[in-house]
Design a binder for these strands. Structure first.
Lengths: 248, 248
DNA sequence: GCAAAAGTGTTCCGACTACACCCATGC
DNA sequence: GCATGGGTGTAGTCGGAACACTTTTGC
């Protein structure tokens, strides 16, 4: 699937006129803590120059013979043990002088970053603490100033998440296998804002679509009537895929 | 806006373990011939190895000190003289062994392609024939087998175009400055399929939204009642931006 | 009993669909 | 006149918004 350069360019230009790149991947990894209704993003602490002591998105440089997605998967595997994973390319940032380590001279190697967007289930994700490098789930609302321009990348990923919630069943990649309709509603409300829809209308609409299977199991969360646990039926959703706005 | 590598990776890995990249940009450039109601894509003929004699998307390799967008703009400027331009990043293709010229050994330079999506006004776009390399607008329905995996990139761009038509006013970037509502409708019908909407309903809905300004000027196209020329009022559209599905 | 949370039902209204119909031009 | 394409109007229907109401639990 690559677009490729043209030989002409290779022929007509001295090779030194072309920029040399190292390519990095940076991952925006979201999760949701259903119990506390919080949208979380995974951050790691930097211990090296530059930006020592800043948090940043988990990333790495692409190695020989490794595809971009392989590299993204590799960082994830180093930081988190996870069974279920949704991964998608976000955007490529690649201008010159983006990294403080890029030399001022024009003839140095350049760093390009391909960002990926990932969703994981909170309960199934186990952070790998290696003792040295800090790693943590941050509530989106409390993310500090990050290294490089990772705040921008995070914003971009958050926008993508909101969009995807509206037309695709990504919510079920972050929710536990079974969940209450309240959990689902709270997730939507947390990500899209409290006023995105009335709970009872949201509920009625989604149930009518017929891809939520009632397990019959009830759970009680403190006071109030116990809620049914539902399961997402991917097969039943099939006909609705690539229809716009199903969830809103 | 770059995400960047981590120094740690630089330290703990020999530099030779990392892949070295050249980065190319490939542009999917769409235009619309209002007179013939055809959606067009810009292709250039290859004269060099590999894929000699095949058409491909106009692309180039990124030079020293040049941003990705600059490179995309540069190819465009070499192939086409255009006043108005909409440019947006599409996707990054970057696995190993994507280009036949990438050596079989693992330690060779890799080629990564960042594709861009562009829309230009047909009437205002003047193709630059340099005498040697062929260049042409191809109706989308008649695009041949392209070099590399450019057919896939084109498909991806076409999907993006269809999506954007539904919620964003990109149509006015490809239409002439003034246009009839028929032109607009035909564009939508050409891109989205004949059955996307009834003409009169499409018309009523768009006019009600209030961002189409009637210039009062009438044009006659053969037989039939002359049509009004409209102009897109970007300011009036502002409040509707990032509302979904405005055009459908 | 009362508060809290889950779940149901009902009314209202705007938007979209599918047409039928009128208008202005070329020939 | 008639064919052709532009433009307007309307009746029926579907779905979403708002909100009242019922059910089942904890305490």
């Amino acid at each position: 699937m690559p677009g490729k350069l043209q030989k002409k360019a290779l022929d007509s230009l001295a090779d030194t006129d072309l920029a040399d790149f190292k390519v990095g991947v940076d991952n925006v990894i979201f999760s949701v803590d259903t119990d506390q209704n919080r949208l979380l993003v995974l951050l790691v602490m930097r211990h090296d120059h530059p930006y020592v002591g800043y948090w940043n998105l988990p990333g790495t440089l692409v190695r020989q013979g490794e595809s971009l997605e392989d590299a993204a998967d590799r960082v994830l595997a180093e930081k988190i043990r996870v069974s279920n994973l949704y991964l998608e390319q976000l955007y490529t940032f690649g201008g010159p002088q983006r990294d403080p380590r890029e030399a001022k001279t024009a003839y140095d190697v350049r760093y390009l970053s391909v960002s990926y967007f990932a969703l994981v289930r909170f309960a199934e994700a186990e952070l790998i603490a290696d003792g040295v490098s800090g790693i943590a789930w941050y509530p989106l609302s409390r993310v500090p100033k990050l290294a490089f321009d990772h705040n921008e990348i995070l914003d971009y990923g958050y926008r993508r998440l909101r969009n995807k919630l509206e037309y695709s069943p990504v919510a079920f990649d972050v929710l536990p296998d079974t969940f209450t309709l309240s959990d689902l509603y709270q997730l939507y409300a947390t990500v899209l804002g409290e006023d995105f829809s009335d709970y009872s209308n949201f509920r009625t609409r989604l149930l009518k679509l017929g891809f939520l299977e009632d397990t019959g199991i009830k759970v009680s969360r403190g006071a109030g009537r116990p809620a049914s646990l539902y399961r997402f039926d991917a097969a039943a959703f099939e006909p609705l895929k690539d229809k716009p706005m199903v969830f809103i």
